[in-house]
């Protein structure tokens, strides 16, 4: 696989006495899609926050293109962060401004473009996500699926190298989830970003994965393909696969993959 663009080296993260990550070392290959799966409260969101520098590890290094963000000052961190696009679990749109303003925000804040140019780019992006005509609405007036699409537009506005998705489809009905994955496929093809997806939507999301990481009891177990998980002889993995994903889905999934 290609070289890692993000790398955890011996990372320890704890809250009080609770160890979330226990000496974890893992790499996220450039241009590929990594899926992080694991039970609730195992530290999936915490891992994403570590990558974003929103929280710091107790020890170890987190390298983004070779630079350790764990020891960085705010200013340097901000430079690194311009490489990232994030789709938050609840979309995290600013609710005091309109959809248009939300999507325009990264452009207004990080680029110096003319009014017309901002307008053009935002409209183009909204159009791609079937959101034209909704620009003047406020986030509270949107459905969950629409919010995700606005969140995705905002995240892609600066053409990030790395996209992080925290449970992009949790709480959406299957049809809308499929729509989100379709948009994911389309935009990844277009922008070629590295992606990390945290998801419970196991069967669907496994079809997108180049690498799967299962997070369990503070350890990250890496699989170079979704199939590898199926044939894992590790009894813990087997039990995880059964309890988290359900036997039925898995067998369907194998059929689809093979």
């Amino acid at each position: 696989m290609s070289r890692p663009i993000i790398e955890f080296i011996d990372v320890v993260k704890a809250f009080g006495t609770q160890r979330i990550l226990d000496h974890v070392s893992v790499g996220f290959p450039e241009g590929k899609t990594t899926v992080i799966a694991g039970g609730s409260g195992q530290g999936k969101s915490v891992s994403l926050k570590l990558i974003l520098g929103l929280i710091k590890p107790e020890s170890g290094q987190i390298l983004i293109e070779g630079q350790d963000i764990a020891s960085m000052k705010r200013r340097q961190l901000n430079t690194i962060r311009t490489n990232f696009g994030v789709l938050f679990q609840g979309s995290a749109l600013l609710d005091s401004i309109t959809v248009f303003e939300n999507v325009a925000l990264p452009l207004r804040e990080r680029r110096s473009l003319s009014r017309q140019e901002v307008h053009r780019r935002v409209e183009e992006m909204l159009d791609q996500f079937d959101l034209s005509g909704h620009g003047e609405k406020y986030p509270a007036q949107l459905s969950g699926g629409m919010k995700k699409r606005v969140g995705l537009s905002r995240a892609l506005m600066l053409q990030p190298k790395i996209m992080l998705f925290d449970e992009p489809t949790t709480g959406l009905d299957p049809e809308i989830s499929m729509e989100i994955y379709r948009l994911f496929f389309k935009t990844q093809k277009k922008f070629g970003y590295t992606s990390i997806i945290v998801s419970h939507d196991i069967p669907k999301v496994f079809n997108l994965a180049d690498q799967v990481i299962i997070l369990k009891d503070g350890k990250m177990i890496v699989f170079d393909s979704p199939e590898e998980i199926q044939f894992s002889v590790n009894p813990e993995i087997q039990s995880f696969v059964e309890t988290t994903m359900g036997q039925v889905y898995i067998s369907q999934d194998i059929e689809k993959l093979s």
């Binding site: 929103l54 962060r81 938050f88 679990q89 609840g90 995290a92 609710d95 804040e109």
Partner: peptide
């Protein structure tokens, strides 16, 4: 309440991730 809700719904995290200083903004 406004700022608290922004914190809980990850809006403040989102600002930081867009490299926007939440204080200035």
């Amino acid at each position: 309440a406004e700022i608290g809700i922004m914190r809980n719904s990850e809006q403040l995290d989102a600002l930081e991730c867009m490299a926007i200083d939440p204080f200035r903004y």
